[in-house]
Nucleic acid binder design. Structure first.
Ligand SMILES: [Mn+2]
Ligand SMILES: [Mn+2]
Ligand SMILES: [Zn+2]
Ligand SMILES: [Zn+2]
Lengths: 136, 136
DNA sequence: TATTATATGCAATCTAATTGCAAATGAGAA
DNA sequence: TTCTCATTTGCAATTAGATTGCATATAATA
């Protein structure tokens, strides 16, 4: 974990608390996205509502983005630098049908299709389902 | 509504009932996808559980597919002929941030990105957010 | 150290989805 | 046409995840 959670919070003008540091560290450590339940599991003493509101805050401050995959619970993942300013660096997400983990494929920008007359796009979300390298 | 609901059910080996005919007709008439709540609204006498199980059945029989857009409720839409056999004819979906309607863009097949080593894709789901032609 | 806006914990609520079960019904057999 | 039985339906109850209210605790800064 090269990046310092505390540092990151300060940069984003997010008030530093124990909860927030630990929740942010969970994301910095993880190679895949996390649901509220995932975080509850790794931080059993933490309160669900607090986790929820922390994730809300992180999302508002463009520290996290959300992913709706085939699972019931919403997943959260760190924003890359490119995410931060505007959402023009769009990356796909890969959801493994076996282990159910969802990965940000930040390296794999994708081309966007044309649209019907008078439809204007502002954002894209591509979810790829399949089997991840760990589950082959 | 050129296509006959009853006919369609028979072709798919789905037992014909009043509920199913009317629910299927809702989809045949609609230019955008529908949630359970949408159907409850247009068929006020119908039971939520019945609608739910009907949609399950329709999905299993490849009459409908589902779409997770930014709204809370899951949306359902008719499968095109191409959907039916295998899911290789992938089309994007457009979700309007104003009216909240979600359209199947069956005309607009999209290119798929490369994947990391040892990741195998089996399905793709692209949701485009923006403003639809009605809301411009 | 005092002040104050903000974050937290806990319980309650909300929403959409999902299930159990007994009664009703569709489709094929007789 | 009527009978039979697997399937579907309606209703009520439950689940799962997200979200909120409110009193208390705490971080930031003066
Ligand atoms: Mn991502
Ligand atoms: Mn579609
Ligand atoms: Zn996997
Ligand atoms: Zn619209």
């Amino acid at each position: 974990m090269k990046i310092n959670a505390q540092q990151l919070l300060k940069e984003k003008n997010i008030r530093i608390t124990a909860n927030r540091i630990l929740i942010l560290e969970s994301f910095l450590k993880s190679s895949y996205s996390l649901s509220i339940a995932d975080i509850e599991e790794s931080l059993p003493w933490a309160d669900r509502a607090t986790i929820f509101r922390t994730l809300m805050t992180f999302k508002e401050k463009a520290l996290l983005h959300t992913i709706k995959d085939d699972d019931k619970a919403l997943k959260y993942a760190l924003c890359s630098d490119a995410c931060q300013v505007n959402h023009h660096h769009i990356h796909p997400h890969f959801h493994c049908d076996i282990c159910s983990k969802t990965y940000c494929l930040t390296q794999y920008e994708f081309p966007t299709p044309d649209l019907p007359e008078n439809f204007k796009a502002s954002n894209y979300s591509l979810i790829i389902n399949g089997i991840c390298s760990n589950c082959q």
